[in-house]
Amino acid sequence: MKFPKVVNAYCPRCNAYTEHTVSIYSHGKRRNLAEGQRRYLRKLKGYGSSRKPKQKRFAKTTKVVVLKLQCRQCGYVIMKPLGRLKKVELTEVR
């Protein structure tokens, strides 16, 4: 799916339709000091292997694509999920 890099969308902070820059959202790095991550790493230690069994059959072949729209005037960010797509391409505006 092709999506423009700049789109006109509603900004709740500006209370108007403004230009937004579009980028594809990607999650950040995992925090090693978070409680759940520390618990997971603690369970991995010792003679046992991994905490949960390795998955053998993968049913899903795509990931949910989320677009990040950032207002050019105030910098407010809107997340817009597109759903499951094989390929997303950001194109220039003509």
Rank of each mutant, 00 (worst) to 15 (best):
Y17N: 09
Q73Y: 05
K80R: 05
Y17T: 08
G75W: 00
K87G: 00
R13H: 10
S23R: 12
Y17V: 11
T91H: 02
V88W: 00
R31M: 12
E89P: 01
K63V: 10
Y40K: 04
L90N: 06
C11Y: 00
A34H: 05
R72D: 09
T62D: 13
G28D: 15
G83C: 06
K60F: 09
G28A: 15
I24V: 15
L82E: 08
T21Y: 02
C14S: 04
Y10Q: 07
P81R: 03
R57M: 04
R94G: 05
F58S: 07
A16N: 10
P12G: 03
V22Y: 03
T61P: 07
Q73I: 12
V77A: 05
V93N: 08
A9N: 03
K68Y: 00
F58N: 09
T21C: 10
A16R: 07
M79S: 02
K45D: 14
R30S: 13
P12K: 03
H20C: 06
R13S: 12
K54N: 15
L41D: 14
V66I: 15
V88G: 02
V64M: 10
K86S: 11
R51S: 13
V6H: 03
H27L: 15
C74S: 08
R13V: 15
K29Y: 10
E92T: 11
V66W: 03
E92L: 09
K80Q: 07
Q55W: 04
P53L: 01
K56W: 02
K86P: 14
L82A: 07
V22A: 02
H20I: 04
R13G: 10
T91L: 08
K63M: 12
G83F: 03
R51A: 08
Y76I: 03
E92Y: 06
A9V: 01
A16H: 06
Q37T: 05
E89S: 10
R38T: 07
P12E: 09
F58C: 07
L69C: 07
M1G: 06
Y17F: 11
T18M: 06
K5L: 05
L41V: 08
R51T: 15
Y40I: 07
L41S: 10
R72P: 01
K60E: 15
P81I: 02
M79N: 02
Y40A: 10
S50D: 11
N8V: 08
V22D: 01
E19V: 08
N32H: 06
R38P: 10
R72F: 01
R94Q: 03
R30G: 12
R39I: 14
N32W: 04
Q55K: 09
N8F: 08
Y76N: 07
Y76V: 09
Y17E: 01
K5Y: 08
K54A: 15
L90I: 10
R57F: 14
M79L: 11
L33G: 04
L41R: 07
T18C: 12
I78G: 00
T21K: 13
V6M: 13
Y25H: 15
L44I: 06
I24N: 07
G28E: 12
G46T: 05
